[in-house]
Design a binder for these strands. Structure first.
Length: 286
DNA sequence: TCTCAGGCACTAT
DNA sequence: ATAGTGCCTGAG
């Protein structure tokens, strides 16, 4: 019986709690100061101690997997410097520290965001966990149970009723259809990964239930396409207030503005702005 | 009881 | 192109 993988990662400019709880990812469990979740298809337990991350995981987990998932390989300083293009962003970057974009597993990310439409963060999280608990695979880590989402073919087999019973509501058929597409190859994540942003996005949008916003979320959070700038009602309000004098602007124009104004890491700017307004309220944008 | 939430698809203009 | 409306669900 070999010792399970464990180790310590140096993690500067990193806030684990903020990164896991800012709303970019769903399905992590918190007990005391420990976080339990899935990286790749392996259960892991994480804890931050100052600028170090302690991890332990199921057999097969490597330190480099954890580093990569948490975004610790990214040069956060350079990224944030590139989006510090105006006084508002400087204010945002002064108040939000150590938030990094994760490298989520595409299927997990797609499921999560299919559930996000007209839904609250807490309930998305609850539904993701319920689907995993009821239909997914159980993993054990340090005496805790963690569940990964069912593979696409397995989720498809659960059917619409199986998803509704977990609280998916009107999004249930979207999940089932997406699962079928991934299972039979009609949606190929490797292809999405290989294509330029616009083409990758239009492929994701062939899935029912995936529009501009959700496609951008998946591209940003699972494929590290930092030019993606998801526009939800909060971001829309903030951008209108700060950059358009509270004038109404359509989402397409907001995305175009963001790409030009923030540059290739616009998506990082989005996540920082999002957290800022969710913390301090949308009115502080002005 | 009723409204509404981190959208989307469908339909009618 | 663009606007209006229904959709599960449960917390306030």
């Amino acid at each position: 019986m070999s010792q399970l993988p464990r180790g310590i990662l140096e993690a500067h400019d990193f806030n684990l709690a903020l990164t896991l709880e800012c709303g970019q990812v769903f399905g992590w469990h918190k007990y005391d100061d420990f976080y339990f979740g899935i990286i790749g298809d392996l259960a892991v337990e994480l804890e931050q101690q100052a600028s170090r991350i302690r991890f332990s995981g199921e057999s097969g987990l490597e330190a480099s997997d954890v580093r990569h998932y948490l975004g610790l390989d990214d040069d956060l300083g350079a990224i944030l410097a590139s989006v510090a293009v105006d006084p508002f962003m400087e204010r945002v970057l002064t108040s939000v520290k150590g938030l990094r974009l994760l490298k989520q597993e595409p299927w997990h990310c797609l499921c999560s965001y299919l559930l996000s439409s007209s839904n609250r963060v807490e309930r998305i999280d609850k539904t993701v966990k319920e689907i995993a608990r009821r239909w997914g695979r159980r993993h054990g880590i340090d005496g805790h149970d963690v569940y990964s989402l069912p593979e696409p073919a397995d989720l498809a087999a659960c059917g619409e009723s199986g998803m509704r019973s977990c609280g998916a509501g009107f999004r249930a058929p979207y999940l089932v259809q997406a699962a079928q597409m991934v299972a039979d190859g009609a949606l190929d994540f490797d292809l999405v990964r290989s294509l330029p942003y616009e083409e990758a996005k239009s492929i994701l949008m062939t899935v029912k239930g995936v529009g501009d916003k959700i496609a951008d979320c998946v591209l940003l959070f699972a494929f590290s396409r930092y030019e993606a700038f998801p526009v939800d009602v909060w971001i829309k309000k903030a951008i209108e207030q700060v950059y358009f004098g509270s004038k109404k602007v359509n989402n397409k124009e907001i995305r175009r503005f963001a790409r030009e104004h923030f540059g290739p890491y616009a998506g990082y700017a989005q996540e920082y702005i999002y957290h800022y307004i969710r913390t301090y309220g949308p009115e502080v944008a002005a």
